[in-house]
Design a protein around this nucleic acid. Structure first.
Lengths: 301, 301
DNA sequence: GAAATAGTGTCTATGAGACACTATTGC
DNA sequence: GCAATAGTGTCTCATAGACACTATTTC
């Protein structure tokens, strides 16, 4: 609400106001909260979904992998700007290349115990990037690399939505020592530091949902692409094969999804078949009608 | 990312690490950011959508209305808990009544200049509440009241306002209510403090989208309800009349949306017609197939 | 009786998906 | 030639929406 740091002149009000007022000025009430941004940056490499991770240099979770992120620079940048800055720093992308990356806010995570050192509220962002060179090669990004999502969540976790009924903090047994993993957690060996595997799970579910009703699947591809390449994006993100013929017709039938470049693929590494026509992203921001994920029957309740 | 407040032992790393490290410990880098939660609480009163607002007691924006909210109590509560607490304080609801309210995270707003006093990052929440008594009557909530959304965004802001296709939408008598807002009046005079009209707009759009594919429209109603009452929720939130017959059949055909109570309405204030059957919310968490908003053609791009 | 509402029947247009088929390329 | 792929044709089924109609209640 950004209020109730009201001027002292408002002291004549009701008791609640006074209490709020005092709370507001008690340094312990808000000073100890740090604000960071974390980025779930997704890309496709060799037909597999990858996420950008960094290796932690110090405790807690020293040596483990985590999502890239960092502190918001107070008074100097917005949340969106902070996320874009972090992403650029870790990938080594310049502004031009960053312009082709889709970046959107994913959600905020602020349980009091998610970081053992202090109360840290993190604003998570989700990025869709086209194929990029190794982040490690980049100047700044020392420990950053693209990690296959399957290495973190062994058999995808395509079906069940991450399900965040109420509080998302509270991962039992994950705090304090920095080593205690949840017992019986399948991905234990590869899980990310802090609550970052939950953030990643939320990001993956968002990505799966988002390409249903937006043309953002094209953000994983280059300037021009074939329908088959676009289909590969959907198959990889959804983790399910799609019918090539029906997909082809469907994509071309949605207004503004793609538009023809008039050219054909020069087929680098093709295994036969006619040359595919090339398309670029259209001007639609929503797909209408949407592309529906196959068989979501189990997800309904 | 909640990292890079790394221990001094990690000092041997690359230059970037060191810079981050220093940034992290520079008090100006994160101390001055305050974290608040704001709540967009929506309810239906007399077939009109209302949002909970409070009157600001001091500058800035003294005397203007704003969304309810307040500071997150560092180290003592999660974001969800803070939002629930704020909502309870402002509405005077007890835990039991709060249990029937849907509360979800909406998004975060953190521009450096959104509050003139300091950098404030606000986590916005969206709440769907059934009809409630006046918030003002509640103990704590001095300046809180339910404000018609139209009083803030005069002619809805759902794209177009042309409510004409059918005629069955509005119940007679619900439109004559003088809320003190002049029709045709621009939004400027009544806009909320800070960037809260933007947050409200985002909340409204989320609400409109959410009732398409979730059964959350039932959260605006009591324990049991008629199909017509449910339709009134959709018509009010979407700002467009729906075909009664088709809506009826559609709702009953979606698995898990509603289930019959076996009883019929006792019709208080009915204006004729047979007694409607009563239903309660089903166990579905997603509607499959979804209810689609009428004519979104223009929205596509 | 008039008017409003609850609920159902039915027809049509559209889209999703299954399947079949042709054409074009690499090997 | 064989295998793989691009792209199109066609059929069936499910659904959204228009429209019509009956039954039930209030005034």
């Amino acid at each position: 609400m950004t209020d109730d740091v009201a001027a002292p002149g408002a002291a004549g009000e009701a008791a609640r106001r006074e209490r709020d007022f005092l709370d507001s000025y008690d340094p312990r009430a808000f000073d100890p909260i740090a604000v960071t941004v974390d980025v779930v940056a997704l890309t496709l490499r060799a037909d597999r979904l990858h996420v950008l991770t960094v290796e932690r240099g110090g405790p807690p979770f020293a040596g483990e992998r985590a999502l890239p992120g960092g502190f918001v620079r107070a008074g100097r940048e917005s949340l969106d700007e902070a996320a874009a800055r972090e992403l650029a720093e870790e990938t080594g992308l310049d502004a031009a290349a960053l312009g082709r990356v889709h970046l959107e806010q994913l959600g905020s995570y602020g349980g009091p115990d998610r970081d053992p050192r202090m109360h840290v509220v993190s604003i998570a962002y989700l990025a869709f990037a086209p194929g990029l060179p190794d982040a490690t090669a980049g100047s700044d990004a020392a420990g950053a690399s693209w990690t296959p999502v399957e290495a973190i969540f062994p058999q995808g976790q395509p079906r069940h939505a991450p399900r965040r009924p109420f509080e998302q903090g509270r991962r039992p047994g994950t705090y304090g020592g920095g080593t205690g993993r949840r017992p019986g957690h399948r991905a234990s060996a590869q899980a990310l530091a802090f609550d970052h595997d939950r953030i990643l799970a939320d990001g993956l579910e968002r990505a799966r949902a988002k390409i249903e009703y937006t043309p953002l699947a094209t953000a994983f591809l280059g300037e021009s692409f074939t329908i088959s390449q676009l289909r590969a994006v959907y198959e990889t993100v959804w983790g399910a094969p799609l019918h090539a013929g029906n997909f082809h017709r469907k994509v071309l039938s949605v207004p503004g999804f793609v538009e023809s470049t008039g050219e054909t693929d020069n087929r680098p590494g093709g295994r036969g078949g006619p040359r595919a026509r090339l398309y670029r992203a259209g001007d639609a921001r929503l797909l209408h009608p949407a592309l529906l994920r196959p068989d979501r029957e189990e997800d309904v309740r």
